[in-house]
Design a protein around this nucleic acid. Structure first.
Length: 632
DNA sequence: ATAGGGTTAG
């Protein structure tokens, strides 16, 4: 595997110090960028080719500035700003783009030399600024500024320039102002090229109007690979993952060379769906089309394989990457954690830190998840502290979620409650839900009743809380209360989101609902399920119906549980997945307790492997055991 | 000599 994008050398990773003399700066910067490795990053290569002829290199240097680690360079742009009065049009245009806001707008009217290019640089700067910072104040100010720049361009007679128009369309798209964007687009129908069309496409996608984007795409007089990848990205953004993959396949079939963006996006779609065959197809496209492997692609592949249940393939890709960025490390660490390989995840985190990388909030989601899933209580507490104290990362809801889970699971329910009550943001009810299920597990009846009633008040539509509370009452043999909770639940008319299970077979995705009879092979599936049930009963399996709360008899409960979507998928797996291969299932909800037992038993009795991805983790089941250690 | 569109981790 070839990876074509090496990172900066260690020398360049340290922020350079800058002098007032741009010539000296250029030499120093180029020195820092010169190759530890034969291949250089694109921008750096351009710099190196231009050599040390500073006068010529300066604009390129400026162009490369935003991509370089210039933490210590606050005064540098200002010193450039002061020299701008004598800058050439060429250099000052670059200045417009690289200076931090609000310098470009202050600089623009004072520049002695401007040309139509200047407007595009200025607009690009505004768009970047707006894109990078979603704050309302920034947004309003930038929009006003953009409209002002638009007016200036009209006055200067530059508004008909193709590049200026494209930059304007992009700008209004970033603002989310599709009406203004459309107006610029419609004004001069003859001054358009593929970039114009792509900018409009992207504007609609950004505004969440993927349907309109699709109409534009279908009617475009010209398309290139960016048009395709924008549409694929649009569908992924809207959660229409199957459609996104369909468009991607169409692109490949039509012979359009898939670019990195399209592939990364398609991999993300496959990852979110959890469909390994789809993901492998995208990987094949990479290999067949000879797309150069990059850090982005590597990271996306690692993520895809982890989320599609093949942590081994993820590791293989990760290990083959000669250079990795934070994305790649985070994907791998989080992947190990969701697969229950907590020790490996923590070990990898330590390696990551020892190689000089700086963890992000996502890294800690992975690490804390790893600790919680593996029961590493002390380590979890320690990393939680480390995150804030050493790295200055503020805890987000996900971090609290991991910690509450970690503590509750270990029986430290009181500590979990203290953590929730001390939070600096309003806690998500889900955190209390974690505490509630811990109360059930650890038999804390009184606390469970308090928390359960509070939760039902907070979120009356969530049926899981009623189920938990009722089972806590049941555990305490308070049958009157159990009945009351049931009644409350049916009166409130809680809506449980419908559970489904997906199964892939030879490129076709099969979706099952509870008691589903719609599948074309339904008869065979139910026959298979009967056979499995018989064999499991012989092996001593007894259904546990405690998770069924409907007011029905036990016999009916057993029946209800027997046709859970997951079991239908397993039965179908017996029919279509060749022996020796694991049966892979993707679920939207958590596995119910009895299905979990049932599935484990299947792996033991029939000697098959089952891999289930539920809402938040993987269950690797083999020989009657599960990687989650029966806690989820 | 300069310019414009698309990109992923919880």
């Amino acid at each position: 595997m070839q990876f074509g994008t090496p990172p900066l050398s260690p020398a360049a990773r340290r922020a350079p110090t800058f002098h007032a003399d741009p010539a000296a700066d250029a030499r120093q910067l180029l020195g820092a960028l010169l190759p530890p490795r034969p291949a250089l990053h694109h921008a750096h290569a351009r710099l190196a080719v231009l050599g040390l002829a500073t006068a010529r290199a300066l604009p390129q240097l400026l162009a490369a500035l935003p991509r370089l680690p210039l933490a210590a360079s606050h005064s540098y742009p200002l010193s450039l700003f002061r020299c701008a009065s004598c800058a050439s049009a060429f250099a000052s245009n670059h200045l417009l783009r690289v200076l931090p806001h609000p310098l470009p707008l202050r600089l623009f009217p004072r520049l002695p030399r401007r040309n139509p290019h200047s407007f595009t640089f200025l607009l690009a700067s505004l768009s970047n600024h707006l894109d990078a910072d979603p704050a309302v104040a920034v947004s309003i100010a930038s929009r006003l500024m953009g409209a002002h720049v638009h007016a200036l361009a009209v006055k200067a007679g530059a508004a008909g320039d193709l590049y200026v128009r494209n930059a304007l369309i992009h700008f209004y798209g970033v603002c989310g102002d599709v009406a203004a964007m459309r107006k610029v687009f419609d004004e001069l129908p003859l001054v358009r090229d593929v970039v114009t069309w792509n900018a409009v496409l992207a504007g609609y996608v950004r505004a969440g109007m993927v349907g309109v984007a699709r109409e534009v795409f279908d009617g475009m007089p010209m398309r290139d690979e960016v048009s395709w990848s924008t549409v694929v990205g649009g569908y992924v953004k809207e959660g229409e993952l199957e459609v996104a993959l369909g468009v991607f396949k169409n692109m490949v079939v039509q012979g359009v060379k898939a670019n990195e963006a399209a592939i990364v996006t398609a991999l993300s779609a496959a990852a979110q769906l959890g469909l390994l065959e789809q993901g492998k197809f995208v990987h094949e496209v990479i290999k067949r089309a000879g797309v150069a492997m990059s850090m982005n692609l590597g990271a996306a592949l690692v993520d895809m394989y982890s989320k599609c249940g093949s942590v081994a393939a993820a590791k293989e890709v990760f290990d083959a990457m000669p250079w990795r960025d934070v994305f790649a490390w985070n994907s791998m660490i989080c992947g190990l954690a969701t697969h229950g390989l907590g020790h490996d995840a923590v070990q990898l985190f330590e390696k990551f830190v020892s190689e000089g990388f700086c963890p992000t909030n996502i890294t800690f989601v992975g690490v804390l998840n790893a600790c919680s899933r593996t029961g590493l209580v002390d380590e979890g507490r320690w990393y939680f502290k480390l995150m804030a104290e050493k790295y200055g990362i503020e805890s987000e809801m996900e971090h609290y979620g991991c910690m509450v889970d970690l503590l509750s699971r270990a029986g430290l329910v009181q500590e979990a409650i203290e953590l929730i009550e001390g939070m600096h943001i309003p806690p998500d009810p889900v955190l209390w839900g974690t505490v509630l299920s811990a109360c059930k597990r650890h038999g804390l009846v009184d606390l469970g009743i308090t928390v359960g009633n509070k939760l039902i008040e907070l979120d009356p539509a969530h049926d899981g809380y009623y189920v938990l509370l009722a089972s806590i009452y049941a555990k305490a043999k308070k049958w009157d209360e159990v009945r009351k909770v049931r009644k409350l639940m049916s009166n409130r008319g809680t809506s449980k989101s419908a559970g489904w299970s997906l199964m892939e077979a030879h490129g076709i995705v099969h979706k099952f609902l509870v008691g589903d009879m719609d599948h074309k092979d339904s008869v065979q599936i139910y026959n298979m399920l009967c056979m499995i049930d018989r064999r499991l009963a012989e092996a001593g399996y007894v259904p546990d119906v405690s998770s069924v709360l409907h007011d029905i008899g036990d016999e009916e409960k057993v029946h209800a549980i027997k046709v859970h979507s997951e079991r239908l998928a397993i039965a179908y797996g017996f029919i279509v997945v060749e022996a020796g291969s694991p049966i892979r299932i993707v679920k939207n909800l958590s596995v119910c307790g009895d299905c979990h037992e049932f599935s484990k038993m299947v792996t033991k009795v029939f000697g098959r492997e089952i891999i289930v991805r539920d809402g938040s983790r993987f269950h690797h089941m083999k020989d009657g055991k599960c990687s989650c250690h029966d806690y989820w």
